[in-house]
């Protein structure tokens, strides 16, 4: 059995304490020395930490592949963070818009005001599963004031399509989801105009270039009528190798469950450029008594009209 000497143990402990106190005093003395001579400590530190300083400078400013990779990675990480913050704020803004729109619809329904007075109420006679090509037949016709191009609504804000054929007693409505339907829509969220085309089967799609941030749930509205909504984006098809992306839109209510719709009394069909130009020529002819051939371009007409005004 090993024997321990109490004198030896006490002496060893004293020596240990002395060593500890010695090193503590050295460190405290170094700190006090540094307070009196800060330049000395700074120079010693700069000398000892020179490898660290060189490495740090190399990472921060070198054009080598590794520092470039590290810097670009740090920049990308910060960019991702910034984009996430921006996305979060955009989501909040979009939610606010949706909440305000829903609140607006509820208030309009409560006060029974708004554009509902400028519309006819029509009953749906036939639905898309009976009629081909997503057509809807309603029981109001030209005798009640329905015109071709009039928008048809579901409720107050939901646009279903446009009247394409009118008889005395009934009309046909081309749904915006019908194949071949083309119009212009405005997407809330990215706040961009986009062409909308019907796909069929109760689905339409908007076509946008890559880079525009469309997401599921964003509202798509008919820009020519205030607060008229086509529906919301229910799916996004985005393939990075393709130049365009698609957002698929479904109406807020299933078409087959519609019984009553409302029909606007005015057509919203836009005039084509040929009609517009011919009407403008007619007006200029009446205003300035200008005689020109049919193949004169619009700019020539305007220039000659300006010349007449100047004379």
């Amino acid at each position: 059995m090993k024997m321990y000497s109490s004198i030896k143990k006490g002496s060893s402990r004293l020596s240990f304490l002395k060593t500890k106190l010695f090193w503590l005093l050295i460190l405290i003395g170094t700190i006090i020395l540094g307070l009196f001579f800060p330049w000395l400590i700074s120079r010693v530190s700069a000398f000892v930490l020179y490898p660290f300083h060189v490495t740090s400078t190399w990472v921060k400013s070198s054009d080598g592949p590794l520092p470039l990779y590290l810097r670009s990675r740090a920049a990308l990480v910060s960019e991702v963070e910034a984009i996430r913050k921006e996305q979060a704020s955009q989501t909040g803004t979009q939610l606010s818009i949706q909440r305000l729109l829903e609140e607006n619809m509820q208030l309009r329904a409560l006060t029974k005001s708004g554009p509902i007075g400028e519309r006819l109420i029509a009953r749906v006679l036939d639905r898309p599963n009976i009629l081909p090509n997503d057509l809807l037949q309603i029981d109001q016709g030209s005798s009640q004031g329905v015109v071709v191009g009039a928008p048809v609504y579901n409720g107050i804000d939901g646009v279903l399509g446009l009247v394409v054929h009118v008889t005395d007693k009934y009309s046909f409505v081309d749904l915006f989801t019908s194949p071949g339907f083309l119009s212009t829509a405005y997407i809330l969220g990215p706040n961009v105009f986009a062409p909308i085309e019907g796909v069929g089967g109760g689905i339409a799609r908007v076509k946008l270039p890559q880079g525009v941030g469309i997401r599921v749930g964003q509202l798509v509205i008919l820009p020519s009528i205030s607060s008229a909504i086509y529906g919301e984006i229910v799916s996004v098809q985005n393939e990075p190798t393709q130049p365009e992306q698609y957002g698929y839109i479904a109406p807020s209510q299933a078409i087959n469950s519609l019984l009553y719709v409302t029909v606007g009394l005015e057509s919203i069909l836009s005039r084509d450029i040929v009609t517009f130009e011919s009407e403008m020529r007619e007006q200029i002819r009446k205003a300035g008594n200008i005689d020109f051939d049919n193949d004169v371009s619009t700019s020539t007409i305007i220039n000659s009209n300006e010349a007449n005004i100047a004379e």
């Binding site: 400590i41 700074s42 530190s45 700069a46 930490l49």
Partner: peptide
Amino acid sequence: QGYELVLIGILIDGYYQSFYEWP
């Protein structure tokens, strides 16, 4: 013992010139 930590602290304070104020 941890004295080497204090030594590293002194070097870092000296590198960032903290001894001109309080280390």
